[in-house]
Amino acid sequence: MARVTIDLPSMLGNVLGGVRRIEAEGDTWTQALDDAFRKLPALRVHVCDETGALRRHVLCFVNDVNTRFGEGPPPRLRDGDRITIMQAVSGG
């Protein structure tokens, strides 16, 4: 499994004891997120909704690629990849 970093937005840090980065492992970004949820269980409710999918206004990038784009199975992660959780631009 690839070893990756998951960066969290500052707002999530404000309710998660200041945590802004998690080291995680997984072959895909969903596996890496599951690993992060195991390490920091309080994170899950903020990233996923009751359907288990990413919340409507939450985006997840693998390096520079938005995971909402693209079709087919998620690409395999490589060591050193960066996953970034961020708020979608939802109006303004």
Partner: peptide
């Protein structure tokens, strides 16, 4: 938060906080 959902936070001194992991859901 409309982005990140709802949770409970707990503290004994209003300074050090921890999120309740098994909150209402």
């Amino acid at each position: 938060s409309y982005v990140y959902g709802a949770a409970l936070q707990t503290s004994t001194n209003l300074k050090d906080w921890k999120q309740v992991e098994k909150g209402p859901s």
